[in-house]
Design a protein around this nucleic acid. Structure first.
Lengths: 338, 338
DNA sequence: TGATATCATGAGAGCGTTCCCACGAACGGG
DNA sequence: CCCGTTCGTGGGAACGCTCTCATGATATCA
């Protein structure tokens, strides 16, 4: 095992208090002493015992990452891997560790208890797609600092980090309209996911800006899956859309298949736009115009935000929206002749 | 915060020792006392403080999951999500927690230290695709229990859990041969990944069993990516294969594209078989015959194995190989007429 | 120059557990 | 009936750290 504070102290000829101060970057330590202690610690390969530190200080430098796995579809694209990568790397950079929970219905209650109590954790990142996740309520009840991945209702005092779904999809739909498309349809995500709601709202906003009346037959709610996209497109096709904005690339791919099966051409007859920029998007036929999200970045920002909250628990809730990139490929063609 | 042992003791009218015994399922506690303590603990919503327990006992009930992210390709299929899911759920079931490290070159040294020392962790699951991962060496040096995901050289005393790559690919290639294919080629994975090596070995073994001479021009090493599969297939095509066994579905998909681009038909001219059964495999044209791995199961078994090792540190290394399923779709056609 | 603030350091207590040992009660065998 | 076990229980010590307070040395100001 690693040596203890006392051993370092002995070797450096100081008290364990001084070593502790050095290790924690406290001021009021003589430059020379600090250097000596540091060098001894380095030589002996000292690593503070996290459990002891935690017990004494109440801080663990561990943050929990809770991902309720209700929505299995999310595992088919690299969303979570990227998110997790962003989170862990930023944690590392900030000397924190990540504890992972994938919420399973069966263990959820036990897990929640474990997360909230036990004192093991300084804060939680909740990456739930659902707006009404039960963990959220539990989290709010306790004093544990937490950050949501995904926007939340603005009148509740919760901190969150999200992609700017609303602006992104508004921009995308505006783009379709600018190309000269006149009957732009949309396949939305589920209404209980904020991403679904926001992306629909962006669609509506773009129409409103151009004073284009909303045709409810051109709006179909789906579930972010390819299969769902396929079926939804089939329902939309009879109403003669000339463009489709799918709220996820997976659904866009499904929609493309439906369009093909109906004997229509992309983009000549119907322009297709997606959201997410999954790897497949660049290899569809034709390549898919879509919105790229800074997923990894979002993980990073979530960690930074959480650490900030942990350090300043009584400040205002933080709300961060990240900008996206419009990735223009050929599935929407170019501007139509007027 | 959660109440402490002493508070439970006070309410139950016993000493903290007795409460501790109850919480840890020690024998030699009166039935009635045990019941009383348990009920008090339940009422007060008691949760043991993990830091304190760890400090006193040296055990944390936390296992580390280290995934070196060198190979980014692995993030494009749901391998890791499934693995992680298997690991976390089994950890939950066994009252353990998961600490996650995605190894990044930059932080690796710090991370290793953190993993190995600090006493935070009871054991490690190392899900590295590489055979010569530097973390492995560090891990072996210390006394920390660990389990590898992925087979390892048999003469070193390390425990591992893996899919039976060798038998699986031998079976697949045998299947192709049984269908009457005579020039079966293979696109292998990298030589520094055990999965790549084993799957090639299975291919060779199947040929050997039928006394079919190995044509080295029909064997091309690649990198598990679609792009790699595409290029490799292009190199193989001139040598007139009538079947191709790709060591991953991603490569198989690339190979299919190359075959198409060369104007050949699947499966009439060339049968295609993959490995992994990624979601896409069932939706290629034609649907891909492949090998399904019990990835989630593998995670579960790894956890169980690790916990067993933690409890019995001096036993023999455990080596587990899991069986796979041959998923027969239409990319290999049916038996050719003789 | 004496009173006061600042700095570098050390010592003690405490964080919530587990582990070890001690103690009395109950029990059984000689 | 006494002595050695076994059982249920309690108390002390320890785990390795942080935090608060005390102390003496040095710097600052009137």
């Amino acid at each position: 095992m690693s040596p203890t504070l006392v051993e370092i102290a002995k070797h450096a000829g100081v008290s364990r208090s001084t070593v502790s101060r050095v290790m924690n970057d406290h001021p009021n330590v003589d430059q020379e002493t600090r250097a000596r202690v540091l060098s001894v610690a380095e030589n002996l390969n000292y690593q503070p015992n996290i459990a002891a530190r935690s017990l004494a200080s109440g801080r663990t430098q561990i943050i929990g990452l809770a991902i309720p796995t209700g929505v299995t579809t999310l595992f088919t694209d690299p969303y979570f891997p990227l998110l997790i990568q962003g989170i862990t790397s930023t944690c590392n950079a900030n000397d924190h560790s990540v504890m992972l929970w994938l919420g399973e219905p069966e263990y959820e209650r036990r897990t929640i208890r474990q997360i909230l109590q036990g004192g093991l954790i300084d804060g939680v990142i909740l990456a739930s797609a659902l707006m009404d996740d039960p963990i959220l309520a539990a989290l709010q009840k306790r004093q544990l600092p937490f950050v949501l991945i995904g926007r939340h209702v603005p009148n509740e005092p919760v901190s969150y980090v999200d992609v700017d779904n609303l602006s992104s999809s508004r921009e995308m739909v505006s783009y379709l309209l600018r190309l000269g498309r006149e009957r732009v349809a949309t396949i939305t995500g589920p209404r209980n996911m904020i991403a679904g709601v926001d992306r629909l709202e962006g669609y509506l906003m773009a129409l409103r800006e151009r004073r284009i009346p909303v045709d409810p037959r051109l709006i179909v709610e789906s579930d972010f899956t390819e299969e769902g996209g396929y079926r939804s497109m089939q329902r939309i096709l009879p109403f003669e859309p000339d463009a489709i904005f799918a709220a996820s690339d997976a659904m866009a791919v499904g929609a493309m298949r439906a369009i093909r099966d109906a004997g229509k051409r992309i983009p000549e007859d119907i322009a297709v736009a997606g959201f997410d920029d999954i790897p497949l998007a660049s290899r569809t036929d034709p390549p898919l115009t879509t919105v790229r999200q800074p997923i990894q970045r979002m993980g990073s920002v979530a960690v930074e935000t959480l650490i900030d909250i942990i350090n300043h628990p009584h400040a205002q809730p933080r709300r961060v929206l990240l900008a996206t990139d419009l990735i223009i490929r050929s599935s929407c063609g170019s501007a139509l002749p007027r």
